[in-house]
Measured scan of single mutants.
Amino acid sequence: MISLIAALAVDRVIGMENAMPWNLPADLAWFKRNTLNKPVIMGRHTWESIGRPLPGRKNIILSSQPGTDDRVTWVKSVDEAIAACGDVPEIMVIGGGRVYEQFLPKAQKLYLTHIDAEVEGDTHFPDYEPDDWESVFSEFHDADAQNSHSYCFEILERR
């Protein structure tokens, strides 16, 4: 099963200049909980913004210009990325925008964090048809001392 995991502000903004323009430790914990011990696929820009392999996960970098870091697996196509994951129950696609666009048609599940923030962004989550998805989990949280904005975790499964 292919799943996408993303944090989205208003207007589906997911990033600005290779960074997330908010401070939500709870979302980072949600991300870790849902990706640990699963292969993660990301684009080169996302890889560069993280700066290191995510521990406890097979890191697969999709790029037309593969790098030389041998701590991760470099691939040039969506099919190659899927094959590099091996026989696993769930593959997690973690961004960025172009990689989400490439995998959305193949995805069966979306793990979304909806952030109540209007922020400037240069990267967006692809538009998706809500009628194609069923919400199977939703959990709202107010902003607090650690988390700069209110947010809602949601899991959607393709109908």
Rank of each mutant, 00 (worst) to 15 (best):
E154H: 14
D87M: 11
L110C: 04
D122F: 00
Y100G: 00
D122P: 01
D142N: 09
Y111M: 10
D122W: 01
I50V: 05
I155N: 03
N147M: 03
F140P: 14
H124R: 12
H141A: 05
I5N: 01
S148K: 00
N23P: 05
S49G: 03
L62A: 15
M92G: 05
R98Q: 01
M16A: 13
I115G: 02
F137W: 06
E157I: 04
V99A: 11
E101I: 06
H149W: 00
S148A: 00
G15W: 00
A6V: 08
S150R: 10
N147E: 05
F137P: 03
N18Q: 15
P130G: 13
S3G: 00
D79W: 05
Q102H: 14
S138V: 09
Q108I: 04
W74N: 09
Y151Q: 14
Q108E: 08
C85V: 11
F125W: 12
A9Y: 02
F125G: 12
D69T: 06
R52A: 11
G97Q: 08
P55F: 11
E48I: 06
D132C: 08
Y128L: 06
P21C: 14
E120V: 05
F137T: 12
A117T: 04
W30T: 14
A29T: 04
G56T: 07
A81G: 06
R12Q: 13
E134P: 12
R33W: 04
E157R: 09
R71G: 11
E154N: 15
C85S: 08
E118L: 13
K58N: 13
P89N: 05
L156S: 14
N23M: 10
S150M: 05
D70G: 07
E157Q: 11
P25F: 14
S138D: 09
T73Q: 08
K109H: 14
S77Y: 15
C85N: 14
N147D: 01
P105G: 09
D116V: 15
N18R: 05
L24R: 01
V75L: 12
V78A: 13
I60G: 01
E157W: 06
A19W: 08
D79S: 06
T73I: 06
N23E: 06
V13C: 03
D132F: 11
I41L: 07
D127T: 13
G97E: 04
L112W: 07
A84I: 08
